[in-house]
Design a protein around this nucleic acid. Structure first.
Ligand SMILES: [Zn+2]
Ligand SMILES: [Zn+2]
Ligand SMILES: [Zn+2]
Ligand SMILES: [Zn+2]
Lengths: 137, 137
DNA sequence: GTCGATAGTGACACTCGTTGTCGATCTGTG
DNA sequence: CACAGATCGACAACGAGTGTCACTATCGAC
């Protein structure tokens, strides 16, 4: 289903490393840090440099192919997401992630910004909590 | 008059450095990083260590006396805010900050989290844009 | 006012996520 | 296949933030 995503961008070559990273991201459903992704790839025997992982994730994020989540510590986490605009509901214990939408929020943000004379508006909305599974311990 | 905010907390002493930091925060209306606050205090002749600035801001944030904003880089910025729950509308060019409220957003976040079985919910909402002044250039 | 316990300070070393460097290597084209 | 240049990755460097610890300042007790 999430099969072959052509690099398509001119000057962007398909390499073993990029294929491995993209493949792993397709498997995972929660946000993972660059270091976690690097470790997992190494564990699987894919020799790959940490620098390359950082740069590839950065490029994918810039291209809008993956979402970035900056937790409290400033450490960035990455996740392959659907294309349309959405936000995340994340378990602060296990990292379980749910994509959520909220037209009301989108309108509110635009309206508030306009009322104060702001333009070219963007916004960040993240919801953190404890999922049902993590609560029953 | 945002005059004298008593340290009041037992074991919390009033020092020249803390008074200077609190005083500067009272003057400023936009988010400033620890380093910017440190520089400004030095410029004014208040000899003060960067470590102390970091720790004092951390303590004030923990005590809920100031708000923390983590920009894209992970660098934290601080600002004295009103006490009730609110969010921020920030100009990405000049840093001008407006406090905004949105009951609709609060309810939406709680409802969405509950629907997915999440508890102990918190959220982060920030709106970025270009203020009217910055647009006319 | 002075004394003393102790919270606070700050120069410095250090952590850690992330980025810069640059010679070696790989890819895709002609 | 040969080649230009994109890419890789080990290593060094960067920068925000924290830990350390000897020195200092605060403030309640006297
Ligand atoms: Zn969970
Ligand atoms: Zn949105
Ligand atoms: Zn502005
Ligand atoms: Zn809120």
């Amino acid at each position: 289903m999430t099969g072959s995503r052509a690099p398509s961008v001119p000057g962007r070559r398909a390499t073993r490393q990029r294929t491995a990273i993209a493949g792993l991201l397709d498997e995972l459903s929660d946000f993972r840090s660059a270091q976690e992704i690097h470790e997992e790839l190494r564990r699987r025997g894919d020799g790959i440099g940490l620098t390359t992982v950082y740069r590839t994730l950065q490029a994918l994020a810039d291209a809008g192919e993956i979402d970035v989540l900056r937790a409290g510590t400033g450490e960035a986490s990455y996740r392959r997401c659907s294309e349309h605009h959405h936000h995340h509901l994340v378990c602060r214990s296990c990292g379980k992630t749910v994509e959520v939408e909220g037209p009301a929020v989108e309108h509110w943000a635009d309206r508030v910004a306009a009322q104060h004379g702001f333009a070219e508006v963007s916004h960040t909305v993240e919801i953190l909590g404890l999922c049902a599974a993590c609560r029953q311990t």
